[in-house]
Design a binder for these strands. Structure first.
Lengths: 198, 198, 198, 198
DNA sequence: GATGAATGAGCTTTCATTCAT
DNA sequence: AATGAATGAAAGCTCATTCAT
């Protein structure tokens, strides 16, 4: 038990370190020795925890998915209106992008970009399942309550994730006129208007 | 003249071939020898046309930007209502994604993801300038006509591009329930609802 | 300690192997894979010891400079007359050229010729500092004792090194009528006559 | 006749252009396309005049040798004393190094350094034969006149060429305290003292 | 478990040389 | 003679992965 927990701790250490490097420099520009050095272990030993660089990236993806899912779940569990929930989700997303940018950046710069890395092992949405599920729960409940229009889930999911991801990208490119959080109101309103029932 | 055109033809051949490979496998997983082989020339000769792999990617980006800009310009020049224009843009985007998927995929998988490749030579939005400008023209005119709500351009741009890009990504992941073009109505409506004036 | 010594041993192995190849074939005609193969290691591993081909050449230069400096220092520390010291230096130089020809050849064929290789890292005479210093000590002391004529150091240094280098070059070209060591007397006398005080 | 002369003119053009580039950048860092461009012709056509890069370098060497030989011959033909002739030769050498540095630099940076280039085609002193011969004539006559000590020719030749080459090298390294021509007196005296009869 | 030296395949890029025009 | 596009071998260097210790 203690042994397992120790191993888990180390795995966690690796995941967090690698996440930061991957998000900053991209998948291919980050080397295993760099990751190992960054967290103070040998590259050989790293292979005792993750059998390949690709698999490590996949585990990181699951980790982020779980993390974001937990945040969304809190919102789902609350008694907010759907409109308020949308704003809460946007907030969570942008706050994460500012306080833990590696999480969102990994999504945009590694997952979205290097599809070949996730082709074997993360088919479909396997590795982001938890996160997608929470968004789905949010959407289904809102539709059931009659607050959002009933439509294909992915029409809504694509809007949500594409929009938020796009804004973070533009922010990273430094072309936005305002700070990311200053867009929260506009964007929440836009999303709500797009999805609300007539 | 004939000479120039011959060289231009070859450049074009390279751009189109490289575009397909980059879009499918990503920037780093595509090698110069692969590109050369794919279009039936030697890798040495390829360097007579593009002096580096990065520069090749940048030229491709400009090419796509120009191509999409031309399509959007046609819509801008038409006498459609803003709502109809939105639908026309969505159509163009999805049709392109289906008939020439490499164009959109390059945007998503290479440009969006491998920022370091475009840092020197495509600062800001230089290389996608034509495309962004047309979207901006569409938006400004629609606001001027009072058909869309006046708001920060990037709030609208992020919605448009993020949403459409997100849908193409999901389509590529083969998780969608319908063909991409079957989403056109839903998505156009959502975008219009999000942006229309009150 | 043992570990350090092991790494040092390997560095030494590389330096000696590379020295031989560089001296025989020149800097550019010698490839890293050739060096690696010559000393029985992989070219990848060689980069664990020297981070570039240029840096390897610079380390070799320092190594030779230190080696020759040590020999000259012995002569400087002796109680020989200046005339005898000149002969001793010529002897050392020619003996080295015969027993370890790569040392002198590297000087002539790599250092002297491929200045661009040493531009960054061996500015001025940094990398041959030890050797030049010993020659300078010899000259200054001989002048102080009144045995050699007082003149610009480089007039004497150029004579010494140019002359000896030139002879080794001619020997390498196999145009000399006698073995190198058979020239020792003539050349020592010539140098002494050129530099002695009136 | 006209045809031959035209061809000769072009050969000469190539030799002079290539000489400048080789002397400045070295043999390996100079490419055939660079040479072709420098003299305003195509690289393909250059091969109509010289069948390989190595052979071009060898022809250049012969050209320099002939040029310097002509200068030395003038001195040999004069009625100067041996001591004055030595000074005249030193002057010629240093003046050439200053007014046409490419000539001397080619000797030092290409011929002396890249032996492998001259191994096949310039064995022994074949390609510098004219030049060496003139120096030999000077030396033999001076010995015959009893002005210089009788010794192995190469003892004297090595002194001459090594010394002068060494000084030009040091000058190029910018370590000398004076301009090259300011060393003429010292060096001529040193050489004369070294070689004069007792 | 932990280390880091070692491997070797593979990358981008260069360039002497050829050859169709 | 002249062009310059084309070839293709080879270079320096990187890095995921392995393995002896």
């Amino acid at each position: 038990m203690i042994d397992t927990s120790k191993k888990e701790q180390k795995r966690s250490l690796i995941i967090n370190g690698a996440l930061k490097l991957f998000a900053t420099k991209g998948f291919y520009a980050t080397t295993i020795p760099q990751i190992a050095k960054f967290i103070g272990m040998s590259s050989g030993n790293l292979y005792n925890y993750f059998s390949s660089k690709e698999l490590l990236a996949q585990e990181i993806l699951k980790y982020i998915s779980a993390h974001l899912a937990k945040e969304i779940r809190k919102i789902n569990d609350s008694s907010l209106s759907s409109q308020e929930k949308i704003k809460a989700i946007v907030k969570i997303y942008f706050n994460t992008a500012q306080s833990q940018p590696e999480m969102i950046d990994f999504f945009l710069r590694v997952y979205l970009s290097n599809r070949e890395v996730f082709r074997k092992g993360c088919e479909g949405m396997i590795c982001v399942n938890e996160f997608v599920t929470e968004i789905m729960i949010f959407f289904d409940e809102a539709v059931a309550k009659g607050e959002l229009k009933n439509q294909d889930f992915f029409s809504a999911f694509g809007l949500f994730m594409g929009y938020l991801g796009g804004m973070v990208f533009l922010n990273g490119e430094e072309v936005l006129n305002k700070r990311l959080d200053e867009y929260i109101d506009d964007i929440s309103t836009n999303i709500y208007n797009a999805l609300k029932s007539d």
